[in-house]
Write a protein that binds this DNA or RNA. Structure first.
Lengths: 316, 316
DNA sequence: TCTTGCTCATGCATTTCAGTATATCTACTC
DNA sequence: GAGTAGATATACTGAAATGCATGAGCAAGA
């Protein structure tokens, strides 16, 4: 077993079997047949000298050894996808696919109009938007460009600071008419609050930086910031959301303006290798401009509140 | 060209052709034949829709498009190699290959005895030592474990500080007998100095931190720290080297001890994913102990010199 | 000028690999 | 208890990819 000679294709089928859980499903996914996929797995096990899966009539259950190899197979898949993205964008033309990673709220509420305008300007450009609150690794090529609320510490990344997104309490006008408008932070105790479900490290950081916040139990708990936003819009109660999003709906009114506000520093991040790729350069610039406009457009609405609540390296 | 379906194997042959420069050489490297390799490249070009190489009787010259894809192919190769390394190290047994990245001096002068002892304890363990002053990327899996003189900033890396390696001026006894022992830093101007060739950013940082150093032209210039060490040992002149290395040879004597010394903070770095891999854990611990011993063993020799010349984030 | 050594390109035989069809096993539903 | 739908494993057949042999082009050196 000195000179291993495994086909790189076997890694792909291995990963697919791992993801799908059965030879048949993997075969469907790969456009192959079940015997072929089985043979690939057999060959890989024969080469390595130990089993990767335990067969059962319900599918293939990965062994610990197989799970240990999964991260490598994942990066292989991400890298080959990135290679294809780069390859399908021809020289000097803005075409091909750009994969963008952003939080759910940003990806769903903020980016679409920006991307629509970009696509109108470059019809050959395809957008892959990964709207998820899990941080994707740019170094592993899981995305080409990312919108981040945390300062990018890694080398080999190009980062551009696009401003700070202010967030503060908001509620629907109907709710305020029904329950009254709180005047102080302490008044919040008598209201229906919308907040997080599980306490993440990012949230703990926010709490630590904002001792003025009363600790009131939430009436609506959701980890998804989108769900919190939807609850605010539905008039469920008072929650925190980006001022810029609230300003779009005249029925959403700020609550305790000036008494509590935080700013989420926002960065646009891209891998250094991609700075010469036209499709990425163009998208990067369009996102930077669009996000700056978004932040600037809402800045006047909250002008006058200069509280030093610093940038929370956090959610949203 | 919507649904690209390129075999991952074609990436491997593509990369090999890129590295070797010809279909024939790539075929030899891969254990295939030249027509097969040519067909792989043809298929890749047909799928992408544009040429990757210009054919000539002397070999294949990559186009710009091909060069743009090379980093991705490199990552694929590094990752699949890492996967194989992980795969060939069985469960719960210390076996398989560990790839270690270190500077030339550390890798050649310091590590071998440590690794020899490690291998004696675990004969099934294979060592791949990459002794190079170019920084290899642990996140890209170019190595499993690295000895670094710079603080590791990246996430997802496990780092252990193993101490500070003191470096200072040294010379061979023969040289001192011939040219005399300098008493002050200014005396260095009358001596044959051994130093760097090109001024890197790391070296500039050292110079900035050590204003007491006179700017004297070097009589022997080499970017390789190994070559500088060899020049010191050959009695060429006075140069900077690690005190621990100098202490091994009674003919190498310290020059201006206490007047100039720097400490290179040293870290052992490993990817987080590998902390459960027995072969890596064992190697990591052995390196940590070995390097600590190396540093400790030379500490008494220079005891008493407590000048605050801080850690230079630099070479050696 | 002719040889040598390197390259890539092409036609043809073969081997290898993938697909089809089928058997078998298990869980779940009626 | 029979039937259905999911899974893997195994023979057999056919296509596709590989290897072999050969031809042709170019550069260096005798």
């Amino acid at each position: 077993m000195s000179k291993m000679d495994l086909s790189w294709d076997s890694y792909r089928t291995f990963l697919t079997v791992l993801q799908e859980g059965s030879l048949s499903a993997a075969a469907r996914e790969l456009g192959l047949t079940q015997p072929t996929v089985g043979r690939h797995v057999d060959a890989m096990e024969a080469t390595l000298g130990y089993p990767l899966f335990v067969r059962s009539p319900h599918g293939l259950l990965p062994t610990d050894a197989a799970l240990a190899l999964k991260p490598y197979a994942d990066t292989l898949a991400a890298t080959s996808a990135a290679l294809l993205r780069e390859a399908s964008s021809q020289r000097d033309t803005v075409s091909g696919a750009v994969r963008i990673s952003a939080s759910e709220v940003i990806g769903i509420e903020v980016l679409p109009p920006i991307l629509a305008e970009l696509h109108a300007a470059y019809p050959a450009l395809t957008i892959e938007l990964s709207a998820s609150d899990t941080v994707e690794d740019l170094l592993r090529q899981e995305a080409d460009i990312a919108v981040r609320m945390v300062a990018p510490a890694q080398d080999a990344l190009i980062a551009r600071h696009v401003g700070a997104v202010p967030i503060s309490f908001h509620a629907h006008r109907r709710y305020i008419e029904r329950r009254g408008m709180p005047e102080t932070l302490a008044d919040l105790a008598r209201h229906s609050l919308i907040g997080y479900d599980r306490e993440t490290s990012a949230i703990r950081a926010i709490i630590a930086r904002s001792p003025e916040l009363p600790s009131v139990p939430f009436a609506f708990k959701a980890d998804s910031n989108l769900a919190q936003l939807a609850a605010i819009r539905a008039g469920f109660g008072i929650g925190i959301c980006q001022n810029g999003l609230a300003a779009r709906d005249p029925d959403i009114v700020p609550v305790l303006p000036g008494l509590f506000e935080m700013k989420l520093e926002t960065w646009l991040v891209m891998h250094e290798n991609l700075k010469t790729a036209p499709r990425c350069r163009v998208t990067f610039d369009a996102l930077a401009k669009g996000l700056r406009d978004y932040i600037r457009g809402i800045a006047p609405a909250v002008a006058g509140s200069h509280d030093p609540a610093q940038a929370a390296q956090a959610i949203v």
